[in-house]
Nucleic acid binder design. Sequence first.
DNA 1: TGTACATCAGTGAACGCGCGTTCACTGATGTAC
DNA 2: TGTACATCAGTGAACGCGCGTTCACTGATGTAC
Lengths: 231, 231
Amino acid sequence: MKNVKGNPNENSLSKASAYHHGDLKQALVETGLGIIRKQGAHALSLRAAARKAGVSEAAPYRHFHNKEALLASIAEEGFNRLHQRMVEAIAAAQGDPLAELHAVTWEYAEFVLQETDHFRTMFSSSLTSSHAAKHPGLRKAALQCFEELVGVVRTCQKSHILARNVDAQATAGRLWGSIHGMSILLVDQYMVFLGATPEQTRAFVRQQVDSHLQGLRTFTSVQHSGKPKRA
Amino acid sequence: MKNVKGNPNENSLSKASAYHHGDLKQALVETGLGIIRKQGAHALSLRAAARKAGVSEAAPYRHFHNKEALLASIAEEGFNRLHQRMVEAIAAAQGDPLAELHAVTWEYAEFVLQETDHFRTMFSSSLTSSHAAKHPGLRKAALQCFEELVGVVRTCQKSHILARNVDAQATAGRLWGSIHGMSILLVDQYMVFLGATPEQTRAFVRQQVDSHLQGLRTFTSVQHSGKPKRA
DNA sequence: TGTACATCAGTGAACGCGCGTTCACTGATGTAC
DNA sequence: TGTACATCAGTGAACGCGCGTTCACTGATGTAC
């Protein structure tokens, strides 16, 4: 996209000429994402992505084995962007554990609200059913996001904001599920009665985190003081 | 499907002959669902559904305007079946409000576990983005499920299991989001570290409800005793 | 009871389409000498 | 520095395919008389 003409000061990734694109793989991810955003996932084809990238319709096969591989790359890019946003949100909390926890979960919801179609692709059924085996990069990117959440939960455990005797992964998983489901249902307009403006949606999602967080605190303390759970 | 040959004792819906099918619309929903279950949503086409129903490839157009209409009918059927299961689960709780709440949420998760592909179709992006305007029947069926949950929440409020000063729809929405997201993430194998057997998944989903429920109790009592929330 | 007729669910052939994928090729690039 | 060559990203034509949808039709059914 940028630097279509060769430039002696460029690094090797952005080399380009009229014939050689330079970084067609990334360009196809971008144009593919553009199609998903503008026309929906059903409109995405390798040919359409190639056309939009200004390249012949067979060119994508130099970089992707098949259509699903492009989809997986677009999804992986989504998790990478989400991860970046999560990291920045945590950094903005300046070391306050509870603020970190709020920030990272809110950022997740914010991503769903802003990048709905990209988000849907990241969790599309054509990928999720077999992503572990077929798309290790995608899986790694997704787990990277999850690990960020786990890290914040661990920090909160150290600060006694969350109970320390509960598996941090399980706790993070609960939070993830809660915010994931709520965000999707709101974005799909299943709860218009709650108000449909972005502000109302945003507020409700944030309250969802607070609500579940209360449960995690209580739930974990009950476990701590009560009888141990069965294996 | 049943009663391919005419029978004088049948009602009008199950009339059939070699030429006239009898209830092709419902048969197409069934065969379409069968394709989704066996080969995935990508394999569903009007032609494939027609072939599997033993009928010419143009016949579906007598009953569905287009492919999306068939998809919407399959999704609607899913919500109807889910609703039926929810009602039965509630009935089995025999009037114990908390047991009803557990039963209805667990049944939701059970449906996701057992009917994963059908469930995915019910929330597929090709339908959710415009279901309100385009598919009123689908929307109605979905809301019917939600109202079942709202009803149980109201019962719990009457029994002081949940705070009475909080909107029942909002509370039910939180629960829905929590269980919806957790179920999906588990079914999509994003949390294999928690254990991937159906039993482990089931147990974890159930704990998710308990966890969130604790939050709703605490959260709502805090609201009750604290300052009122801003509008 | 018997017959003519309207209705309409299902037929089968056809349309145009865009897609995924393959393949021999072309031409730009970097490098070994 | 200049040249021959290997490499490989991108080309363009072609393949076969299944799809969504249309259309004039056929034949089974129910009903009015």
